[in-house]
Design a binder for these strands. Structure first.
Lengths: 183, 183
DNA sequence: TGGGTCATGTAACCTGTTACATGATTAG
DNA sequence: CTAATCATGTAACAGGTTACATGACCCA
């Protein structure tokens, strides 16, 4: 359950609200996991019911009240147990509507397919350009809360992202060349 | 709905049973989409109810009876419409329990993390080795049913798979070097 | 005689998505 | 004056997972 354990891991850095968790998923973890606010709030309830979290209501006057969640001992054990698994099989398996589409794209005109691939090429370039700035994103957010070890592993996921986008760009360039050369 | 349209696309090659569809997902499409038999049978029912498929019962004596599904005109339109979308945004977004794990792996001992990465390295090498033989898999299955165009696009997904596994291998080698050089 | 293939599913559950609702404050 | 931010959720639905059930045939 990566959503649950992702949230657990973030709350292990520091206690926070559902709203803050949502921002982190949206701004920093979106490369490898996406979550809607509705899902986060539902999961927080379930996790508290399961004893992995405790919550404290903070009453505010100028802004809406907030519920600050903290990880419990039981939550820390659960997190460690999950982390030890490694989830290595998962790294090589993907689910891609895009590849499904491409696999079946023989029924579509080559022009349309070329256009789609060119659009993808642009997206790849944009994603790579954005990565140049992203180094700061998590950094700024956690500079003070993350240990050297934690930064190291964050860096490894960042490299994975770069490699992935570079690979996609190389692939889409090759694919366009093949389709164009083929007509 | 990639499952639905994937099934539609396969039934556009030729009519077949849920059992055969399941085998294709398991043997040929598993790189970019996975599906349980239960899900396939449920979806077949829904698709027939929606008028995208028709079915004919074939009674057999030595083996269990089978229900052979065929794509309808309405199903072909639906498929074309879905294919035209391209689903390009989807290509760059991933969901990976492995990367979530790694992102939070700072709480785990470096030894355990190194072991996990070495296991991944082996898996990458195996996946690449398997790919050498895979060229035959879909080929044998569809040699006769696929048009030249269809084979072309199948080839592009195959190249994507290769590139992906190669990228993973390069990454995991770098990651191991970084972790080892760091202690 | 035991395990694999053929062939169908059901039921319960878990996870993810979409649409909606509220209402104050603050910055442009 | 308008849009964004803060902060919480609910309800309904869609899609994916796991466990189970049936029963004959074929091969070692």
């Amino acid at each position: 359950m990566p959503l649950r354990h992702g949230m657990l891991g973030l709350l292990n850095y520091k206690s926070m609200t559902g709203y803050e968790l949502n921002k982190i998923f949206r701004d920093s973890l979106r490369f490898f996991w996406q979550a809607q606010p509705s899902q986060i709030y539902r999961e927080l309830n379930a996790m508290e019911k399961d004893g992995l979290l405790s919550s404290a209501l903070k009453i505010q006057e100028d802004r809406p009240n907030k519920k600050i969640y903290s990880i419990t001992e039981s939550g820390k054990h659960e997190l460690e147990h999950w982390l030890a698994q490694g989830h290595v099989e998962d790294a090589l398996s993907m689910r891609s509507a895009f590849l499904m589409n491409l696999f079946l794209a023989g029924d579509l005109s080559r022009d349309k397919n070329l256009n789609n691939l060119k659009e993808l090429k642009t997206k790849c370039e944009q994603a790579l350009a954005q990565m140049e700035n992203s180094e700061t994103a998590v950094h700024e957010c956690y500079e003070n809360v993350m240990s050297a070890d934690q930064k190291l592993y964050w860096g490894l996921t960042d490299i994975f992202g770069r490699y992935y986008y570079e690979m996609c760009l190389r692939w889409v360039q090759d694919a366009i060349r093949i389709l164009e050369g083929w007509s």
